[in-house]
Computed example of a mutant assay.
Amino acid sequence: MFDYANIKHMLFDIEDIAHALSNMCRFNGHTNKFYSVAQHSVLVSELVPEEHALAALLHDAAEAYCGDMVSPLKQLLPVYQSIHTTIEQNLYRSVGVQWPVHACVKDADIKMLATEVRDLMTPNPAHWAFISDQVPCEEIIHPLPPMGAKELFLDRYFSLQAKAAALAANA
């Protein structure tokens, strides 16, 4: 249960986030294969410097509570944007991640978008003109089923948390 009227006092559970994101298809399901928000998040986290990897992994985590909405529609819904932002701020604070995130996270997200368009979408240059200058990743995306994406997300999360704890212990 999530109390949208009391977001600041909500406790976030990484297992719930991983489960929801792994069952959520990117692009509102308009891909040529099922491809989860969880897998997307892991791939974005692998494109940034390690000190920003946790922020990148969690950059879509608020969608576990308010859904993944396609960007053109999201732009038309300021109340949704406000709720999403509040969830994101509180979620980041709860895991000790700075908000707003570093610009490299957005850059990596756009690079991954270009890769996803190449690998998972029906080609239509008119729809994707705004990323025509982006160079996709060299690696081809191989979509995972939901349980595989969930495990990948959780492995990445716990690995990053362990590294952060080790760095803090040595400081």
Rank of each mutant, 00 (worst) to 15 (best):
residue 50 E to F: 05
residue 92 Y to N: 06
residue 35 Y to A: 08
residue 101 V to F: 03
residue 69 M to D: 08
residue 83 I to F: 01
residue 63 E to G: 12
residue 36 S to V: 07
residue 57 L to P: 00
residue 87 I to K: 01
residue 67 G to H: 08
residue 100 P to W: 07
residue 29 G to T: 14
residue 53 A to Y: 01
residue 98 Q to H: 14
residue 79 V to Y: 08
residue 50 E to I: 12
residue 99 W to C: 07
residue 82 S to M: 11
residue 79 V to F: 11
residue 94 S to D: 05
residue 62 A to G: 03
residue 96 G to E: 05
residue 97 V to D: 04
residue 52 H to M: 14
residue 52 H to C: 12
residue 43 L to H: 03
residue 59 H to S: 07
residue 89 Q to D: 03
residue 84 H to S: 10
residue 74 K to V: 09
residue 32 N to L: 13
residue 60 D to I: 05
residue 62 A to D: 02
residue 73 L to D: 12
residue 101 V to S: 05
residue 57 L to H: 00
residue 65 Y to T: 08
residue 37 V to Q: 02
residue 42 V to D: 01
residue 89 Q to F: 01
residue 63 E to M: 15
residue 52 H to L: 09
residue 48 V to Y: 01
residue 73 L to S: 12
residue 81 Q to V: 13
residue 48 V to Q: 01
residue 91 L to Y: 00
residue 65 Y to M: 13
residue 102 H to C: 08
residue 27 F to G: 04
residue 41 S to K: 00
residue 92 Y to R: 06
residue 57 L to Y: 01
residue 97 V to H: 02
residue 30 H to R: 11
residue 88 E to W: 02
residue 46 E to T: 13
residue 93 R to V: 15
residue 51 E to G: 08
residue 68 D to F: 10
residue 66 C to V: 10
residue 49 P to S: 13
residue 26 R to Y: 11
residue 73 L to Q: 14
residue 91 L to E: 00
residue 62 A to S: 06
residue 64 A to I: 05
residue 98 Q to L: 12
residue 53 A to C: 06
residue 69 M to L: 14
residue 81 Q to I: 11
residue 38 A to L: 02
residue 71 S to D: 11
residue 55 A to L: 06
residue 51 E to I: 15
residue 71 S to V: 15
residue 74 K to A: 14
residue 67 G to A: 11
residue 67 G to P: 05
residue 79 V to D: 13
residue 72 P to N: 11
residue 27 F to S: 09
residue 50 E to N: 09
residue 51 E to K: 15
residue 78 P to Q: 09
residue 42 V to F: 00
residue 96 G to Q: 04
residue 95 V to T: 05
